[in-house]
């Protein structure tokens, strides 16, 4: 089932959490709401779920207005950030809850409940823990129980609030992949909130980048990473080197860097920011095209990528990532002056 959000606005006191947001989630997609703390992503998710009431705007499910529909009747599955498992119930009882509280007429027979819950626990690979209490489970297991519980009511939409937020790094990795596979299997329209760009890029079909209550960009992971629409998206998705400066007469003067900028040939001078990711910078011992000289301060050779920290003429930090081969070919020493050439600079004019 598709989700459409139209012009949603939500304020808490004087703080505008969600500011005129519109977006569409097509049926069967897995969409990430990505943004820093305070960007309004959780509020938006709770509004879609019906847990929060928007001040303005509409939420449509499959084209049908659900704005006024009570949370109980929206047909959403919600996975809470801290799981919100019922701690006095076993895993089995937690998953069965949504079926057992149905009005008598629509309540499945206990045998049906049993089969269904068992199947779901198998799906999340926890059938062997059915009789345990939440307190006896690990974080990752609780997460999966929360997911099974949300799926038990056969939601038309699955909403997850920071699903991996309180797990440690390794479990997080595993669960991410597992969620991706699970979604491929069950194909229920899903939205999850995260502040971790890596997570958003790895798991989702599409990413909605939010900042200060507004949507900055919506696109596939490749889109938002390769073609960021705003400086915020550029900066939020991965490491960047930022160069402040101006564009004027078809050239951009950005700190130590001066590059052609034909898009801005005829306009008056304007402030601008240039961005280059660390792996988009090449290092050499002599001048090679538009670039600048910098001094190598520190090398972190651990890993497949070698991370180098340099300082330009005005002591500003420049981060470079080189492949091991590139590094071995150059073998730079700390303190050495190197010429830095960006293969690509993204320029945003103010």
């Amino acid at each position: 089932m598709s989700i459409e959000v139209r012009n949603i606005t939500k304020s808490f006191g004087s703080f505008t959490a969600v500011n005129d947001v519109s977006l569409t989630v097509p049926t069967g997609e897995l969409v990430a709401l990505l943004g820093p703390s305070g960007s309004g992503k959780t509020s938006l998710l709770r509004i879609i779920a019906g847990l929060e009431k928007a001040d303005r705007g509409q939420v449509l499910f499959e084209g049908e207005d659900a704005t006024a529909r009570d949370v109980r009747h929206r047909g959403v599955g919600f996975v809470f950030q801290h799981y919100a498992l019922f701690r006095h119930m076993t895993v089995f009882e937690n998953v069965a809850f949504g079926l057992r509280v149905r009005p008598r007429a629509r309540r499945p027979a206990e045998s049906v409940v049993r089969t269904k819950v068992t199947d779901l626990l198998k799906l999340v690979q926890l059938d062997w823990l059915a009789d345990r209490y939440p307190s006896q489970l690990s974080g990752g297991q609780r997460q999966r129980v929360a997911l099974a519980r949300a799926l038990a009511v056969e939601p038309r939409v699955l909403l997850l609030d920071e699903p991996f937020g309180s797990l440690d790094a390794k479990v997080r990795q595993e669960l991410r992949r597992w969620l991706r596979r699970l979604h491929d299997e069950i194909r229920v329209t899903s939205v999850f909130v995260t502040h971790d760009q890596e997570e958003a890029l790895e798991v989702s079909d599409r990413v909605v980048v939010m900042n200060q209550g507004r949507v900055e960009q919506i696109g596939t992971p490749a889109d938002v990473f390769e073609r960021p629409a705003t400086p915020f998206v550029m900066g939020f998705l991965g490491n960047v080197n930022m160069f402040h400066g101006r564009v004027e007469g078809g050239r951009a003067h950005l700190g130590p860097l001066s590059v052609d900028y034909p898009e801005h040939a005829d306009l008056s001078p304007r402030d601008a920011q240039g961005f280059a990711r660390p792996y988009e910078l090449d290092l050499a011992r002599e001048e090679a095209g538009p670039g600048f000289w910098a001094t190598l301060r520190h090398v972190n050779p651990a890993g497949a990528i070698v991370k180098l920290e340099l300082e330009d003429g005005e002591k500003r930090l420049v981060q470079v990532e080189a492949t091991r081969e590139q590094f071995e070919a150059l073998k730079p020493a700390a303190g050495e002056r190197l010429y830095v050439t960006p293969r690509q600079v993204r320029i945003f004019v103010a």
């Binding site: 808490f12 006191g13 703080f15 959490a17 703390s37 305070g38 960007s39 309004g40 959780t42 509020s43 019906g50 847990l51 929060e52 009431k53 009570d70 949370v71 950030q81």
Partner: peptide, 13 residues
């Protein structure tokens, strides 16, 4: 989370 908890319950479900 960004939204202070005290705001959370205003329009509770």
């Amino acid at each position: 989370m960004p939204v202070p908890d005290r705001f959370r319950k205003t329009h509770s479900v």
